[in-house]
Amino acid sequence: MSLLSVENVNKSFGGLKALDNVNLEIAAGTVHAIIGPNGAGKSTLLNCFVGRLEPDTGSVMFDGQSLLRIDPHEINQAGVSRVFQTPEIFGDLTLLENVMIPAFAKRDGAFTMNVWRGVALESDVRAKAMDMLADVGLSTKAQDIAGQLSRGDKRRLELAMCLVQEPKLLLLDEPTAGMARADTNNTIDLMKRIAARGVTMVVIEHDMHVVFSLAEKISVLAQGTVIAEGLPQDIKGDPRVQEAYLGGAHL
């Protein structure tokens, strides 16, 4: 049963065909990695899922609902959360507030004017946010200003912000880029724990160590088309993949 199904998606920027008839099925409850060389169209594809870009043609169906021609906040309310390549967080707010905001969004919807009930009384949301921060190992910094975090911590914070919403589908754009090996391994462990809860994940990743420790299925994108798709062991041995992506090097 596929949670996200992408059919014949095309997207051009001027003369450049960024996505060329992409078809993709993401099965519910799996970790699906999308790999490919730089400029293959991976981020463009993810942007089409969250409403940042609109495909020229084709359809993107999520849980029986089209994700095209609706606003990003509606897509999120439908159950899709995204971690960006450059962390998008609320830099002026504390870590706790950063995680409470998505929790409020999940509970109260896209717009609520709840002025009379102070934040101090929202102990449920606060507790949930604190748990989430503890999960990603940031609970000691809960009252710090998010903008002052290191890049790795910002990524973990953004992950916490997405997870607190208990999304049906979690999109991750290079979640370990620029991380030290130890941090990368921590992130892999964290993502494994998330996957164990049954969250469906789509991961764009360059680090093959991450891909092969996490992914249950892999799609390889090159020049805007899916050139190969399958289980990790099949992809590892596929000559076309090695040709396109790894320049013939052996894994």
Partner: peptide, 18 residues
């Protein structure tokens, strides 16, 4: 809190369902 979030990062707000 949401109003301060508007000041801080509207992009993140939109992708957070707000």
């Amino acid at each position: 809190m949401m109003l301060r979030a508007v000041k801080s990062n509207q992009n993140r707000m939109n992708y957070t369902g707000l």
